[in-house]
Design a protein around this nucleic acid. Structure first.
Lengths: 335, 335
DNA sequence: TTGTAAGCGTTATCAA
DNA sequence: TTGATAACGCTTACAA
């Protein structure tokens, strides 16, 4: 239990003032090269590390950001966490993580607690909260980056795919492969869910195929949700030959439902996911899916947030990510 | 962009001193019920939230702990994060997360940076680092809870299963089911890996079955690692009828290898995992595995760490968790 | 029961 | 190029 080494210890040891030490370690100018080197060496000798707390107090920048995530058990989202964490670490920033379980009330609670913790900014993925709530927090001196949903406002910026377009891509692909009876497994009500359904409906209508809301099932965005939704869909509509899902977890759940119902994938039913988690390619049959680059998106979200913190008055247009369809063995052509 | 509400604002508004506000909000005594209520009301009116930074500075307790995890993409580990986060949130604590990718050097880096960040304590899962390194950090006024490995020292405490015993349970079960040629997929060198191999070897020897080191493969503890290890094992030893793995991810990878090699699970090869992640029961065939209660363990790790922080001089004996074998469809009896 | 004063370890501001 | 001094928002110790 030794006492903490402080900036004053370094100053005394190096025979300079506290402020000079500060200048040296923060790479500010107004200090001679010679002095800086000596101070840096002393810092090293003493194993000195500045206190984040004291820094935060003095500079009113905590070097800490918040990350609110729906479900960390989902590997796609875990990848966002990993990317954001690595990017933050590289810039000497810390991350407070909050798991919302995709519940709006918990997102709100997380937003409140994080702002109270003096974080410099917040990244939130697939929020269920209304845009208005988000912007009200952003106005309180706390920029927000929204991942996986488009929200445009002062101090708010988005990094997202175009869900509607992505869904069109998927459904087009299935129709092109000869499927006429396509089911959709989507998440519970929220803006993204509406876009998901739109993309689906629109494509069917454009292609002169019947649209039928009974072929849409809403469920929790996890294995169990996907399983139950697919089970229901396939049980009540024997004609379905394909199902598109909101994410890979749901797709894998749907594959299990097919197995339990004695429907072969892809021979009887084609399944298509969204995310391309590692499991997608390590399962039999491997999963056709849309690729979501979670890790990179986590990094980008951090970079974007830093820009917003450093240039508060600037507007940052949303980043719309490209989507890539990865065709594997869970889908096939029918005649 | 409004200015932060401080304790002084509350004090002024309530017509009391700063100290009285502090007493009221921290539930200390030496304050009249009447005054407290008035102060609390003012706090509420003003929407005041104390600054974690200032608190940390003044009390030299940051209300923040560190969590170093091997691989957050692994759902079993993600569950630990979730449990620990929820427990911490309930006690108004924050968590700094570090992903080590199971690399000892990154664990060390994380340990260094976290202690520099004035965390009150650290939880680390399955560390590769030598016990000595861990204890040296613990001595620096930073208690450590080690999950998934037993380390006993002053200011260090463990929550773990007995890997050796767990492995014995698994191998006994397989032998009892008639298997005589059992392979083992384990992680890269580390204390736990040695225990894993011991439990395996010991059981074989006790049951008078040949032990053969070529039936052991070491790999990364993920899907790819499990896939490659199983592929190698099954290719070079056609007699194997069962494989025990270090975790479910590796087991699922192994199942894919079986599929690619045209070996049916469980008819030709029985596979057994460790963790019981959600996928284990949502895959075809469902995975026989040992249950690891990640969420609860995360909670316990936090509680334990709080105890250690509050009672620094006390010794905390390791918690050895019970293991439960969950028999599903990836294993079968052979004759 | 309440208030006053002195830190905690930095950065920011201004003076030398 | 440097250094002294004042914040930052809170807790702790002590005085009233």
């Amino acid at each position: 239990m030794k006492k903490r080494t402080t900036i004053d210890d370094v100053a005394r040891e190096a025979g300079v003032s506290r402020q000079t030490v500060s200048r040296a370690m923060n790479g500010m100018d107004g200090i001679s090269v010679h002095t800086r080197d000596r101070v840096l060496e002393t810092i090293d000798d003493l194993g000195y590390r500045p206190s984040r707390l004291a820094r935060g107090m003095a500079s009113s920048q905590s070097q800490t950001i918040g990350l609110i995530i729906g479900n960390i058990i989902d590997p796609a989202q875990a990848n966002v966490v990993r990317g954001l964490n690595d990017a933050a670490e590289a810039k000497n920033h810390n991350v407070f993580l909050r798991n919302s379980d995709n519940i709006a009330a918990r997102e709100l609670e997380a937003l409140k607690s994080l702002t109270a913790e003096n974080v410099d900014g917040i990244v939130i993925t697939s929020p269920s909260l209304p845009a208005k709530t988000l912007t009200s927090f952003a106005d309180q001196n706390c920029p927000i980056v929204v991942v996986h949903r488009e929200v445009t406002a002062k101090h708010v910026s988005s990094i997202t795919t175009n869900t509607e377009r992505a869904t069109r891509t998927v459904v087009e692909y299935l129709i092109g492969a000869g499927h006429q009876h396509i089911g959709l497994i989507t998440r519970m009500g929220d803006v993204e869910q509406i876009r998901h359904v739109w993309g689906y409906k629109e494509t069917l209508v454009n292609r002169n195929l019947p649209y039928c809301s009974s072929r849409i099932a809403q469920a929790d965005t996890n294995l169990k949700g996907g399983y139950e939704a697919a089970y229901k869909l396939l049980s009540k509509d024997k004609n379905l030959t394909a199902i598109a899902t909101y994410n890979d977890l749901m797709a894998l759940g749907a594959m299990k439902a097919c197995a339990d119902l004695g429907r072969a994938v892809p021979a009887d039913v084609s399944i298509i996911g969204y995310d391309d988690i590692e499991f997608a390619s390590h399962i039999k049959p491997s999963l056709t899916t849309l690729r979501f680059q979670g890790y990179d998106i986590g990094c980008s979200a951090f970079e974007r947030l830093m820009e917003m913190i450093n240039r508060p008055e600037e507007d940052f247009p949303p980043v719309i990510l490209n989507i890539e369809l990865v065709i594997r063995d869970s889908t096939c052509t029918i005649y």
